[in-house]
Design a protein around this nucleic acid. Structure first.
Lengths: 121, 121
DNA sequence: ACATCATATGCTCATATCGGAATCTATCTT
DNA sequence: AAGATAGATTCCGATATGAGCATATGATGT
């Protein structure tokens, strides 16, 4: 056997730095492919292929809008990674810092606001 | 270029399921190679090779004790992954659950006990 | 219908991989 | 010293990869 397929699981999908970069762009809101191509220095076919991988593991979702395909990140699929990491977080001592972050966030927005539809300037 | 080397960064190193399994074993404490071989169903050479990869990215450290090599996990090296994930955690609505986990942990340790919000089943 | 824009797919290539089997090195035991 | 034990390393083969480039698909506007 060679290395596991990138579409095997989320761990393999996010192993590639460019795929993480794409997700980072999409974390700013729904974007067409071209916007990713412009923002990162990757060719359009590469972006499309990476989006395909991300899509197959469910990390992004697509919506057709005219001749454009709008991609958005689906962060819930990162859960296996978060869960796995949670076994190790307690091994180093930053619970308090992280707790403080969460408390701060909680206090700041106070409500359950969820899908901010991209405040495009 | 082919896929990035597994030793490129932590993301690539933990992409392989067996390597994560090895780390999981080591999360239970320092272990010799043979203990990993016994606990997981992997051949000794494979375990050694995986340990080498994990070692090169700093996820494990080795200590020689006689003819045995005791490995232990170095969880601080998971930090890049945690940091990257933190950009996405706020995008899904589990702050409260996670907060509760942290609060629970905290209460068990005994420090900071007055941050507990009311209710929270 | 046609030209154009936005995206997806197909191909080829070089490369790093994981697994298996054999072997080497270092240390302990008798 | 000889043998046994614990790990590490090397060689091999099969495979999936990411990049580049050309091309196909599909929607828009005129």
């Amino acid at each position: 056997m060679a290395r596991a397929a990138t579409t095997t699981d989320v761990f393999n999908a996010i192993a590639e730095a460019q795929r993480r970069a794409i997700l980072d762009v999409l974390a700013g809101g729904e974007r067409p492919v071209g916007a990713i191509v412009d923002e990162l220095a990757i060719t359009q076919p590469q972006v499309s292929k990476h989006l395909r991988v991300l899509s197959e593991v469910g990390l992004v979702q697509c919506r057709a809008a005219g001749r454009r395909h709008l991609y958005r990140v689906n962060p819930t699929r990162l859960r296996p990674v978060v869960d796995w990491l949670s076994r190790y977080e307690h091994l180093w001592n930053e619970r308090l810092d992280r707790l403080d972050d969460y408390l701060g966030e909680l206090q700041r927005d106070g409500s359950h606001e969820d899908h901010r539809p991209q405040g495009a300037p």
